[in-house]
Write a protein that binds this DNA or RNA. Structure first.
Lengths: 341, 341
DNA sequence: TGGGTCTGCGCAAGCGCTTTCGCAAGTTCA
DNA sequence: TGAACTTGCGAAAGCGCTTGCGCAGACCCA
């Protein structure tokens, strides 16, 4: 494995010249440059990333922290973040916390140990003391829905209000008056925000919205629906905290012989890739994953260019994507024909 | 940002002692050890990963190369690989090629520049000259279905025969005699292998298997089915190159008013998480993603412990997972009742 | 009591780069 | 024609760790 010294020796220049050729950091005569490049090719020279980063005192890695790569929300986000980063010459150091607080801490430590100049923390529920660790070590960061900013620490707020009021208005205009929300865990700020946004929009137009508990997964969606079906009246539309819950909802309704969207409309949230593929294709409140990835990078990059950057707050709108799981409300108070009964 | 020197100074020992405390690399008296650890805590010391890796000459990163993180096959693989690696004290350097040959090359370069001791290449279709690059730089590797091994280069072969013959036998026993395969791109070795395995198993039991072309995605599955439906007879079962194609198949059949599994059985391949969630839940030939991730790590680790390791060849069985998209074949030659006609 | 073995630790030479400083030769301009 | 730039490059001092070498003192046994 050849080093810069070997390259330098081979073409009779100093190491510093080789370095400057590689990095384009000072004038080198055309002729010398050619010789150096040729020597690099001859020797199959590849730079040593560690040595370079040590000498430079920082790395070209940007951190990206997510909770769970198997959560279908993340791959699109990662890809967009990575694409932006790559375009600007950064590499991405991806870490998943898998919802484990201990792992979360070690992941933050890892970011600092790797001297990343910035890190995007795209998980909800982060201990802000960890954010302090970053600042102490001069690492810029951008959080998701943390609700606060600080020097060196930015925040991206998902604006649930846009998508929520679109969804509510849309349902209202289809004649829905009695709806249910299968909410996500209420210890997650983003789910609280979404719920509040829906409730606000609902009360504005005068639409009744009951809230059932869910846990953001298929099974809890099914169970919530089963509970709903034991109530005296069944809502004409069900909103869900995310698409997985909506899929569970679809399944439970199907199992109960209730037709979607004829009897009950269903609206998800996230717009994961499979929202398109379920039956019927899911109307959903889209969280712009790709936009979020790109924005997270842009915010980070913006901070890197300043020397004592204040954190910024930006917002990203959600929006309703209409597919086939929603339709006009069934006649008010009407029961529905249970298929096969 | 404190360095080892600061820690050493603060408690009056040499840097080497600090280093040995951190790494447990030689005897340090209990008392000195305590003092060092205390100083580290006081200063909030975090080691500099670059300096350490430079001094050691290698990194604690293991490379993992995939093609596309949005392909639902990969997240589970990544997670399992990462979990194994973490457990053994490695970190993972994840890179996606996004099916771009140029990116593939730069990703390999990156692995070498980062001095990873080993890399798992979990994409199909890799230029073996790139594998050569790895060997030159003493990087151990494990490929997927490359069909060859070499010193420092192992291979994991997916054994399609097990799953394929289970699927064929299963269909045969359900009375299916006339089946179709919507095959994947025939320039990918893994798809060729799967197709061959199916054909072998089919001819063994005397089951007719027509082959239609697909491209491993939902749309191509739909189109393939539409083409199949124009033929004089419609097969009683359709096998697909992957689950996405199977989902397309399900949709196209549904759209044509053909019932699954009553009229036509459908079998996918991969067993992606959503195979469980489509309607009806998909019978599929599972490729053990998690097992693959774990095995890739184990193979890599096995090579790291030797100094001039030969590559090994291991195999991983696929298996049929029976859900609800398959059933007894409709009566031979029988047409099917087109719903709504 | 002197040679061996342990235990505990410091010194200093790297690892392979980047980057500051400064020098030499060529060019420009008054 | 000499001061002031400009162009092109080398020497060498780090960056913050790891690790081989070696030394001092304690201990043991013959």
């Amino acid at each position: 494995m050849p080093t810069m010294k070997d390259v330098a020796k081979r073409c009779g220049v100093s190491e510093s010249t080789v370095s400057h050729v590689i990095n384009n950091t000072r004038l080198v005569s055309q002729e010398t440059r050619e010789r150096v490049l040729q020597a690099m090719r001859d020797l199959n020279y590849l730079k040593n990333a560690h040595a370079r980063r040590l000498a430079r005192g920082r790395s070209d890695f940007l951190g990206l922290i997510i909770s769970d790569i198997e959560n279908p929300f993340f791959p699109g986000l990662i890809k967009a973040f990575e694409a932006s980063a790559l375009e600007r010459g950064f590499d991405v150091l991806l870490c998943a916390t898998n919802y484990d607080p201990a792992r979360m801490e070690s992941v933050f430590r890892k970011m600092i140990e790797n001297k990343v100049p910035g890190v995007a923390v795209m998980t909800s529920r982060v201990d802000l003391s960890l954010a302090g660790l970053l600042v102490e070590n001069r690492v810029a960061s951008v959080f998701l829905d943390s609700g606060t900013t600080a020097p060196l620490r930015s925040d991206i707020r998902l604006n649930y209000a846009t998508g929520a009021s679109q969804a509510i208005n849309y349902l209202y205009n289809l004649g829905h008056r009695d709806c249910a929300l299968i909410a996500g865990p209420q210890n997650r700020p983003s789910h609280v925000a979404y719920r509040k946004a829906l409730e606000t929009a609902a009360s504005r137009v005068g639409l009744n919205l009951r809230v059932a508990e869910g846990e953001n997964n298929v099974g809890s969606g099914e169970r919530a629906v089963q509970r709903l079906l034991t109530e005296s009246s069944v809502p004409t539309a069900i909103l869900c905290s995310n698409d997985l819950t909506a899929i569970g909802t679809l399944r439970a309704l199907g199992q109960a012989g209730i037709q979607v969207p004829k009897d009950v409309s269903v609206i998800g949230a996230d717009d994961i890739p499979f929202a398109l593929l379920v039956h019927p294709p899911l109307t959903t409140v889209r969280i712009p994953r790709e936009g979020l990835g790109r924005l997270a990078f842009a915010v980070l990059e913006g901070m890197l260019h300043q020397d004592a950057p204040m954190g910024t707050e930006s917002a990203l709108d959600t929006e309703l994507v209409i597919r086939e799981s929603t339709a006009t409300a069934r006649a008010q108070g009407a029961p529905f024909a249970l298929a096969g009964e």
